[in-house]
């Protein structure tokens, strides 16, 4: 953004010249410790330069067969990454992601899987939000803009997946990339701060580290991405398909 031009936000985004502007503060995050040794403080990676790309649709594929029922690595990783935790009040503490155990009433088959915001293409939470705080980014990530959330909780009434939590108490010690505060609603951000820098959500990374490899993250619009190829080759479902919300989170072997 050119500093004096406050009134035209959207148009300025593609302007190259703005990047040539001397950026104060943030630009100096790279510090030379010694010749050849630099320290990157924040920002600065090439992917960060681009805004959310409408050509992409970020999604997850969760292979239920590979998800161990006694494993909650994804939940712990999310909690650690985003700074929420179960703090003795399970009814009111936030849970961005949770492990759900299922038992088929007819066949008795038992499975376990993580459930988080499903990042719907037609999200009911976005439809019902009176102020537009619930929003879907161009790349399909559904977020709460906590600057305009008034805490009415209508989105929590509307979400078919119980993906959202309301913050019931004053908080301290938030992560700098995951601001959260009393009186607003929140949910899984698909680790948008990582995705914007070309990274992968913390849950997917943690799942990979366990060796289970039950979660894949990628661009559903890119036919060459691993997630798209897997979806093309193997059967999968999304939750509550009857509602035609077209979630970005897919489950296979459920």
């Amino acid at each position: 953004m050119k500093l004096p031009a406050l009134k035209t936000p959207a148009k300025d985004i593609t302007e190259i010249s703005r990047r040539e502007l001397l950026r104060s503060g943030a630009a100096l995050a790279t510090v030379a410790l010694a010749p050849g040794v630099t320290l990157m403080a924040f920002g600065g990676t090439p992917a960060a330069a681009a805004p959310a790309d409408p050509g992409r649709r970020w999604g997850l594929l969760i292979d239920v067969n590979r998800c161990a029922s006694d494993c909650d690595a994804c939940v712990r990783a999310c909690s650690e990454e985003n700074g929420w935790k179960l703090d003795g009040n399970p009814e009111t503490d936030a849970q961005w992601i949770r492990k759900v155990d299922l038992k088929d009433r007819e066949t008795g088959r038992e499975v376990s899987l993580p459930v988080m915001c499903q990042h719907c293409e037609n999200p009911p939470c976005v439809d019902v939000c009176p102020t537009g705080a619930s929003m879907k980014r161009a790349d399909g990530i559904v977020l709460v803009d906590k600057h305009v959330c008034i805490g009415c909780r209508y989105c929590m009434m509307a979400c078919p997946f119980k993906a959202r939590s309301f913050i019931h108490e004053p908080l301290e010690g938030q992560k700098s990339h995951a601001p959260r505060g009393k009186g607003t609603v929140e949910s899984c951000t698909l680790c948008v701060h990582r995705v914007d820098e070309g990274g992968t959500p913390a849950c997917v990374e943690a799942c990979g580290r366990t060796g289970n490899g039950a979660m894949i993250f990628g661009d559903l619009n890119d036919p060459e991405s691993e997630i798209s190829r897997r979806l093309a080759d193997y059967p999968s479902i999304t939750l509550r398909e009857d509602m035609r919300l077209n979630p970005g989170v897919h489950y296979s072997n459920l």
Partner: peptide, 24 residues
């Protein structure tokens, strides 16, 4: 509301797909 101090937001920002906004 979780943030009654932001009543002004509710009165100035509208999402007209929301029946809540219509109700205001």
């Amino acid at each position: 509301l979780g943030r009654p101090d932001r009543l002004i937001v509710a009165m100035t920002k509208y999402n007209f797909r929301s029946i809540f906004a219509w109700n205001i």
